[in-house]
Structures are given as C-alpha cells and as structure tokens.
Design a protein around this nucleic acid. Sequence first.
DNA 1: CCGTATCCCCTCCGATACTG
DNA 2: CAGTATCGGAGGGGATACGG
Lengths: 124, 124
Amino acid sequence: MSATPTDAKPGSTCAVIDIWEVLGKRWSLLIIKNLSTKETIRFNELKRALAGISSTVLSERLLELEREGLVTKKIYPEVPPRVEYSLTAQAKELEVIIKELAHWVARWKRPQSVAPSAETKKEE
Amino acid sequence: MSATPTDAKPGSTCAVIDIWEVLGKRWSLLIIKNLSTKETIRFNELKRALAGISSTVLSERLLELEREGLVTKKIYPEVPPRVEYSLTAQAKELEVIIKELAHWVARWKRPQSVAPSAETKKEE
DNA sequence: CCGTATCCCCTCCGATACTG
DNA sequence: CAGTATCGGAGGGGATACGG
C-alpha cells in the first residue's frame, strides 16, 4: 500500500484502516446502500428498511458516518420533528469503489465453500 | 448496488457483505498488506511484522482468508516445519481496489475531526 | 516453528423503556 | 417522529500455556 515502513498500532497504520473500522461495522454498508437508493431518507424510514436494527445502533452508525463526512443530517424544526439523512459527495465516490468491490466479488464467486485443508498445498 | 429487491438478513443481503464481514475484522487488511509486500511469508515472520497480534487470531484470520480464496498456504514437511503464505490472484485484484480506497481516503482527508452537531444543517 | 486450547475481559449490538 | 438511557447476552480478540 503506502510506503510506510513501520506498522505499529492496528488502528492507525494507514488511513484506510480508520475508515475501514467504521465501514466494517455491522449495518454501515447497508445504511449507505439504502441512502444511495433514495438520496434522502428519514430516521424511521431507514430503520424500517433495515428491518432488525435498533434505534440505538442506527443512531450510532449515522453519527459515525456523519463524523466521517459520509452522511449529512438536516433537521426541520417541525412538530412532529423531521430529520433527513443523505449521502455526501464523498460517499457517492465511495459508492463507486464499493461497486467495483461488488464486481470483484461477482467475478470470483466460487460455486461453493471449499474446506481450507483441501486446497492447502503440500510440498512433496 | 445489485438489483436485489428484498433485503432481509444483514449477513447475506448482497455478496459484498460477506467479504466485508471478513475483511472488516481486525488485522485482516493489515495481513493482506503485509503479504502484498513480500509475496511469500512465514507464520512467525508475519506475526512479528504485525506486532501485537496473537497466534490465535493470526491463525484464525489466515484461515478465513484462505476460505475466501485470498490466501494460499504451502506446507513444507520439514523439521522444523515451514509454512508459507501468499496472496492469490484474486487477492491481488482486490489490492487494486483497496488502493483506490486508500486514494479516496487521501483525497478526502479532513484537516481534523469535526463535531457532528457543528455541521448538521438546520432548516430555518 | 507452527499452530491449538483455554480463559477472560471487553466491546458490540439487540431489547426495552423513556423523553423532547 | 427522532432519538437517548440502561441493561444484558454473545462473541471478538488478547494472554498464556501447551502440543506436533
């Protein structure tokens, strides 16, 4: 990757790791996916779409994604309150990469799982 | 992402999620990174390079990566035993994508963290 | 040297209940 | 509607010890 010679702490070796630790968490990717299909979405709408996520975690994820600059939050001071979430330009670029990843996955899709020991090569 | 109409279980919504859950785990990315720099590496060598990982976890990660077809294991029946790990062609393609991700991260690198509430927009 | 077995902590995340 | 507070179970992952 980068030419960084010394790798010490796993959390901050290269900058990718940081974002990876956010994106690697459960629901993060699905949240992005859902946001990408609707371009703007409300909290409970998103919660319903994800079907199984709790308010706690959804709120947590959205906050993390907002901190990373991937999601924008817009609050309408109404009653009842309305809050809309949407992807940033940064996140939309990320989406492209994710799609490439999806492409990569599809390209290498194996017919089924293989036991590791079965394909491990032994020198004769 | 894909055109899958119904999304139910978070673990298998689309195929990307699966690989994501493997790659999202701690050390996975760093293991790939280290393997990419040396093209073949032994267990303890890798362990030393990662500095902080336990044998248990390293072994576990390598097994997962092998199951995903990203890593190959070659056992030399010697005394003392020698085992060499290397990236598959599949993983090398993945590396390209990871590099794009790194690129993306670098491009959007913020000067410093911003409090979420500070950038949240309120409708006036 | 290359791992597995065990223990144990600690974080993640789901459930529930409650506020503005 | 849009969250926060709190609790509790499950599992990831570190430390240590041991085996082939």
